[in-house]
């Protein structure tokens, strides 16, 4: 028995080492950049990192400011592009980022992305505040319905995301969730491969009853109104355009409009190629189409004033 246990242990050790090499060489798992929390409480990435996306077809890049993507050549006529994993866009090469497509459509402007997967609406607003030092003329904030829910502690309490307590009107900054464990998991590629491939994470999640899925999710309109009221009082809204994902709730868009935001609702109807087959994120095609709709909206003669708002405010 002892011999068997020793041999099995040895075999597994060798298998783990070989497995680690295979996973790394074949890029079976994406490299994951490490995060940090800056002095303003914003979770971003440690600057100047790079790595491969799953399969090794392309590399992602974290720039010197700690955001994914390439920095613009100049900050003149700068438009910020803020959002979650859709804007972070590790799954596509740099040339398929929103900033690249927007720049090709609007050559007189420069675009800078500031994104991180899981960013809530309130966190996106906090990011815009921090980005003011770069004097952007406008900000585009990409949102879906969940970004509103995830902004409000009373609806979806999440310790790793910046949220607003709408009872006390206080911001609760997100904390890093098990950073040590995550660092081990992301460094030990084989373990990360197993974790992802076999949904090991789900083993540690409480099971939800099937019946719950049939219950219609409440609208939470009152809570969202309180959130927008807070945003209206604490942030500049006039120089910001909220870009809503296709199929976002019309009621939320109306609430945001009434708070002074410019809004765009993206339209992907009858066009399945916007998203990957295996993932809800946008493909290069989806990004291109989204950027086209946004550029058309911003450059439309009726909306010309949008991009000048910041200058008006400054004057």
């Amino acid at each position: 028995m002892r011999k068997l246990l020793i041999n099995i242990s040895l075999f597994f050790l060798i298998a783990i080492i070989i497995g680690e090499i295979v996973v790394r060489v074949t890029h079976a798992m994406s490299d994951i950049p490490q995060r940090t929390i800056d002095e303003h409480g914003i979770q971003k990435y440690i600057p100047n990192q790079e790595g491969y996306w799953k399969g090794g077809d392309h590399k992602w890049l974290i720039n010197k400011l700690g955001w994914p993507g390439v920095l613009p050549e100049s900050n003149k006529n700068l438009i910020m592009v803020i959002g979650d994993s859709f804007i972070e866009n590790f799954m596509n090469p740099n040339e398929c980022h929103q900033s690249a497509y927007l720049k090709s459509n609007m050559n007189d402007y420069n675009f800078m992305e500031a994104s991180r997967s899981g960013v809530s609406f309130i966190e996106a607003m906090e990011i815009t505040k921090q980005m003011d030092s770069l004097n952007p003329i406008h900000s585009l904030i990409y949102l879906d319905d969940d970004d509103f829910y995830e902004s409000i502690t009373q609806i979806k309490p999440m310790s790793d995301i910046t949220q607003l307590d709408i009872e006390t009107n206080t911001i609760k900054y997100g904390e890093m969730k098990s950073p040590g464990l995550k660092k081990i998991l992301y460094t030990w590629k084989l373990m990360y491969y197993f974790y992802n491939r076999f949904s090991l994470g789900s083993l540690f999640q409480p099971e939800t009853l099937n019946d719950n899925s049939k219950v219609k999710e409440p609208e939470f309109t009152t809570e969202v109104i309180k959130l927008i009221d807070y945003v209206k009082q604490n942030y500049v809204t006039i120089n910001k355009t909220l870009v809503f994902h296709p199929n976002s709730k019309k009621s939320f868009i109306e609430i945001c409009k009434s708070a002074g935001f410019n809004t765009i609702l993206l339209d992907s109807s009858n066009d399945d190629s916007w998203t990957f087959d295996y993932d809800s994120h946008w493909t290069c095609y989806g990004h291109k189409r989204a950027a086209e709709q946004i550029s058309n909206h911003l450059l439309n003669s009726n909306n010309q004033g949008i991009l000048n708002n910041f200058n008006i405010i400054k004057k």
Partner: peptide, 13 residues
């Protein structure tokens, strides 16, 4: 032998 077993395991995953 062990190389063959590991090959089978890699193929399985």
């Amino acid at each position: 032998r062990w190389a063959f077993y590991i090959l089978l395991i890699i193929l399985m995953f």
